[in-house]
Design a protein around this nucleic acid. Structure first.
Lengths: 349, 349
DNA sequence: TTGTAGGCGTTATCAC
DNA sequence: GTGATAACGCCTACAA
């Protein structure tokens, strides 16, 4: 039995005992700063040194300490992102694309969810700021006053994505939900439908869905038609969709097309229609929003408006990298990035 | 016009000019270490100091610098996690639950995706290690040799989730895919089905799906039945599922039940069956795996085996917190955590 | 192209 | 209970 605890390597309480820059430098017979340059500006080193250092790094299995580096340089290679949720179908593609683009540039993603709760967002932002992030990305423009103050004082590049409020200061990457409502109404009108209903989201706090509704309503009036709103009471979206479809089709005057605030509602509606023996789109057309993964698998498959989720993530990453100078940006960083949703035509319309 | 750039606050190039611990200390009339204790061991401070410091913190809007703290204490409040992908339906719930539990304990999640690629995983692990993470979580047990070496040398608590290899060193949180295959076969057999086919995943590298297949095959033989495998060639899972259903039902001897390697395949199969006018489950029952969000929305709704995704995330977070001492663990940290999938009965079986 | 000196903001250690 | 001092590991600034 070895007396590890007392004899060999007293194991300093601090500094985890990991291999340091100096250890590599010593082994390579160079100064510490040269090893630093090996990682940060390899071009400024002679071939000879680069090779010697490379060997030492490999032999020792050295991994640069980003924490120490971040402290010394006052800028870390971390980007924080707050989304309402990770597991839903909405933001997942954006997170994925964003994360991949960052990783490719050597930056890491710090992720947190807010569940549409300002307090949660604020505490995530506070936690992120402690890590000296290179940039912060938020998914709404509504923040608590304390959060706004934090962000203002932080001097960190800030993006707001999945939303588009050109009047706000931060870089915007998103689309207009109002325009989505307009597009939905025009699309159905163009297809010949005239009694077009809109089923709202029963979940509270979904302000974006209300923007879509407003776009729908205004456009219908413009077209000389009467907007027709239905607000389900069921809280589960799938149930709410069923409820809406049943209620609307039970009326004397039925709609000939229904816009649902999102695909979950639409799926519920579709299924209720199916079970009731309705022909869709013959008796009533159905249009969703989101292009959730199940949309093509429904019967009939769901026509829906697809938000540019992946694109948002990609462009956001680009803007972040430009804002921190990790990527060139001729003419400065584009502050307003308005993207478009597009109709994915399937069978339900 | 003010001469900001030249006169006031020359703005040091380093140290981002943020409010520091000492600034708070000065304002509160105490030493820096007391402010540090205010955040880390508030119990060791007198009521008076705590109040004074609290005021100063609020007034200055001070946010502790985790980077500096991490360097000084050699342990950061960050946990790294590598998943094959973020946007798929599989890991999202795990990430969500894991992230939430960590955040509640004051830890942050650093996330990266590997796309089932060992090299990508390795580079993510290397990047994470640079941040001195409190723990690392990986979603498979297959790592590159270099990655294994990194992990070994790192002295960081390591978990492997969504997989269960009791013989391996790291903490395991997952379930047995083989057992899933067994359960699927037994479930269908118990329902009276006797000609049970299994449709494999056409995507390469999905070793877990092969484990499920083996469990199915062994169990069928045990029951005195002949295993019956089908391997689609189409690469898109939805198409592959269609292809499998069409091919199997075109045979003289049809299966009376089909196990699909996952819900995407099953959805494709279901839809192909529908369009062909098949009664499901009358003519052929369908069983999936994954309980993807669309499973209840299909027609007929899909009976499937639901993996404990959320539970994996929760337990993983618990084990992480226990391993780093942020949460008590009587009798040490449970190294083996074997969870169960369960059948979600719907209409397709 | 390479090296030296000093500090980034915090916490561990030890003394009072 | 409170404070002074010395790291933590690296990078900026400047010099050679």
């Amino acid at each position: 039995m070895k007396w590890r605890s007392t004899l060999d390597s007293p194991r300093k309480r601090r500094g985890a005992g990991r291999i340091t820059l100096s250890a590599v430098a010593e082994r390579a017979g160079v100064s510490a700063i040269s090893v630093s340059r090996y990682f940060n500006q390899p071009a400024s080193l002679s071939e000879v040194l680069r090779e010697r250092i490379g060997e030492a790094v490999a032999a020792l299995g050295y991994v640069p300490n980003q924490v120490a580096g971040g402290l010394a340089s006052a800028r870390g290679r971390i980007v924080g992102m707050v989304v309402p949720n990770i597991s839903g179908p909405i933001f997942a593609d954006t997170i994925q694309a964003f994360s991949d683009a960052l990783a490719a540039a050597g930056y890491q993603l710090l992720l947190a969810s807010s569940y549409f709760d300002g307090e949660k967002e604020e505490s995530a932002v506070r936690a992120f700021l402690g890590w000296n992030p290179a940039a912060l990305v938020l998914t709404s423009h509504f923040h608590t006053p304390a959060c706004e103050k934090l962000l203002e004082g932080a001097d960190v590049p800030l993006l707001e994505v999945w939303d588009y409020q050109p009047s706000r200061r931060p870089i915007q990457v998103g689309f207009s939900h109002y325009q989505v409502g307009v597009d939905a109404a025009r699309y159905l009108h163009g297809k010949g439908y005239r009694r077009i209903a809109f089923v709202q989201n029963s979940a509270p706090g979904d302000y974006s869905a209300m923007d879509r509704r407003d776009g729908y309503a205004d456009t219908l009036r413009e077209l000389g038609l009467e907007p027709w709103m239905f607000v389900p009471t069921a809280s589960a979206p799938f149930e709410a969709g069923k409820q809406a479809m049943e209620a609307l089709m039970a009326r004397a005057e039925r709609p000939d097309a229904i816009v649902f605030a999102n695909d979950n509602l639409a799926a519920g509606g579709l299924l209720a229609g199916q079970r009731a023996g309705l022909r869709i789109p013959g008796d009533c057309a159905v249009l969703g929003f989101g292009d959730y993964p199940f949309a093509p698998m429904l019967l009939p498959s769901l026509t829906t408006l697809k938000p540019p989720a992946r694109e948002i993530g990609e462009i956001a990453a680009q803007r972040v990298l430009q804002a921190i100078g990790a990527q060139p940006a001729e003419g400065g960083v584009e502050r307003l990035n308005l993207l478009q949703c597009r109709v994915v035509e399937r069978e339900s319309c």
